[in-house]
Structure formats: structure tokens, C-alpha cells
Amino acid sequence: MKDLLLSTPAPEGHPSSPVTKKGNFHRGLLQTLPDLRGFARFLTRDTAAADDLVQDTIVRALAAQDQFQEGTALKAWLFTIQRNAFYEQNRRRSREQEIMQDIEFDMRPSTAAPSRQHARDAVQDLGELLWKLPDLLREALILVGAQELSYEDAARVCNVPAGTMRARVSRARAQLADLAAENSADPQPESEKNIV
């Protein structure tokens, strides 16, 4: 039965029918949108996340349009892109949560506040400190640190030599450490500043 379904061509113009001309690509993409939305809602179980996933799928499909093989089912090709994008986003989100938990558990407990709240504050402070870095240094640190790209891959993303990327990451870490040290130094209360 499965072989019969696979061998029976879909009617011309149907989203799962083979696309034979480049001009039909955009039309087929538009016809497949409802199916992409349905599949995305199945994967994400969230309407807003599903819409984001469909948008990501369309962007990726348009960027890879030249890789689409004429005569194959556009719908299957798009679903493959969508599924890969979904699992990539999940892996990234999972890795980000792991990093945040690692930061949270590595923080020293504070006697001033419950340790969990202190860790959350520290993570929030880290986020604020990251935004104080120059754009190029912050970008390098995010690509290599949070996104786990190699120096070479991050360098390709930024169109710079790998040595430049290594230097940017090193400078970003040093500046982040300096900012953290400045931030952790408790300023004296105003009432104590006036007492000499």
C-alpha cells in the first residue's frame, strides 16, 4: 500500500506534486503554506512558535531554492527543512538552558538573599554586562560561547580571519571580567561617603 501511495503522482498543481519549473517554485511555496502551518503547530504545540517556525522555513527555503531538485515533491522538501529547523531550535534552546543552569549552579550562595534568587540576579547582571561590550566583541563571544561555533566557523560568519576572531573573543572575555569586577564592587552608601 505504501509503495502504491509513493508511486501515484499527485495531480498537477497540488503542493505535493513534483515541481518541474523554477517559476512554479514560488507558487508551490504559497500553496504549501497551510500544510506548513499545520505541521509547525503539530511540532511546536504553540501558535506563535508555529508561525515563527513557518517563517524560518520559508526564509531557509528561499535561500536554498537553487538546491531544490526539479521533479521532486516540494512539500516533502519543505517539510524536511521545517523539521530540521524545529530540531535545531530545540537543541539551541536546550543548550541555552543548560548554560544558564550551569551559571546558576556555579554561583556562590549569598547570605543576603536566597541562592536561587541570587543566581537569577547574577544571570541578569551577566546579560546586562554583555550589552556593555562593543558590538564586535559581544558578537564574537556569543558566536563562540553561547552558540558553540568553532573560531573558524565564527570567523566565516563575520567574514574575518580566525586569528581575528580569537583575539575578539579574548578581548571580550577580558572586558567582561573587568566589567563584572567593577559591578561586584559594592559602592558605599551616600551616608557613609560624607563621614570622614
Rank of each mutant, 00 (worst) to 15 (best):
L5W: 10
K2T: 03
E12M: 09
F42I: 06
A185I: 09
S184Y: 02
R173P: 00
R168S: 05
I103D: 12
S184N: 07
N183L: 02
V157M: 02
C158F: 01
G71M: 07
R60T: 12
G71F: 03
V196M: 07
E182V: 09
R91T: 10
Y87V: 14
Q124F: 06
A64R: 14
M100E: 11
L78W: 04
P18I: 10
V157R: 10
I58A: 09
D46E: 11
L36R: 11
A73F: 08
R83Q: 14
A181M: 10
K132H: 11
M1G: 13
R171L: 08
G28K: 07
D102K: 11
G38F: 09
K75F: 09
P161A: 08
D3V: 10
I195M: 09
D56V: 05
A76N: 14
P189Y: 02
R37V: 04
G71T: 08
K22M: 13
Q188S: 04
Q82G: 15
E70Y: 02
L78K: 11
E104Q: 11
S184E: 10
A61N: 01
M100T: 14
R60Q: 13
L33C: 00
R138C: 10
A76M: 14
A181F: 07
E128N: 03
L43A: 11
A73S: 15
V19A: 13
R166H: 00
A112S: 06
F79V: 14
G71D: 05
P11E: 06
H14R: 03
P187K: 05
W131R: 12
P161Q: 05
S17E: 07
E148Q: 15
M1E: 11
Q124D: 10
D153N: 05
A85P: 08
L136N: 08
P161L: 02
E128H: 03
V196E: 12
